[in-house]
């Protein structure tokens, strides 16, 4: 049967090896390990496993060509930038509110600009002018308007 330390369990020793404990706690465990062969054995086992992992990882990292990796990443970014669908998506998605607002603004400005021209034909319904007063050395005055465009005419006869 495997012996176990009565003070620290394997999990705590594991955290100690991985430097996941506070410095004060680590110091206490370090002092304990010097007097406890069970914890010392566990620590040695974990340190060994840790060394194996670090060594194998280092070997794999050495195999990676960082320049090539960078180049590949840049190519991938370039491909995505040139993607037609992405361009379309980028056009419609970011700041979409601004684009819609611009369109609405153009519509408002157009309506303001063309308002007179759209309403203007209705003005023709009324006379082209209202005669407020007529005076002078005249024998008669007639005010009338044409049927079609309600063009106002003043006709006077000189005295």
């Amino acid at each position: 049967m495997k012996k176990a330390c009565k003070i620290y369990d394997e999990k705590t020793i594991g955290k100690f090896v991985d430097n996941e404990l506070s410095s004060e706690k680590s110091k206490t465990i370090s002092e304990h390990i010097e007097t406890c062969p069970i914890c010392d054995s566990i620590t040695a086992k974990y340190n060994h496993l840790s060394n194996i992992f670090v060594q194998s990882t280092s070997k794999q990292l050495d195999k990676i060509d960082t320049d090539l990796l960078g180049q590949n990443v840049l190519e991938q970014i370039k491909r995505e930038e040139n993607n037609f669908f992405k361009k379309v998506f980028d056009y419609f998605s970011p700041k979409l509110y601004l684009k819609i607002a611009s369109i609405v603004a153009i519509m408002i400005i157009s309506l303001t600009y063309f308002q007179e021209r759209l309403i203007r034909p209705l003005d023709i319904i009324g006379p082209s002018a209202i005669v407020n007063s007529v005076d002078g050395n005249v024998s008669s005055v007639m005010i009338f308007e044409t049927k079609k465009s309600k063009h106002t005419i003043i006709w006077f006869s000189e005295a």
């Binding site: 082209s128 407020n132 005249v138």
Partner: peptide, 12 residues
């Protein structure tokens, strides 16, 4: 010989 005051619609 003649004097009048009118209110002409714009552009007419």
């Amino acid at each position: 010989v003649f004097s009048t005051q009118i209110l002409l619609k714009n552009k007419r």
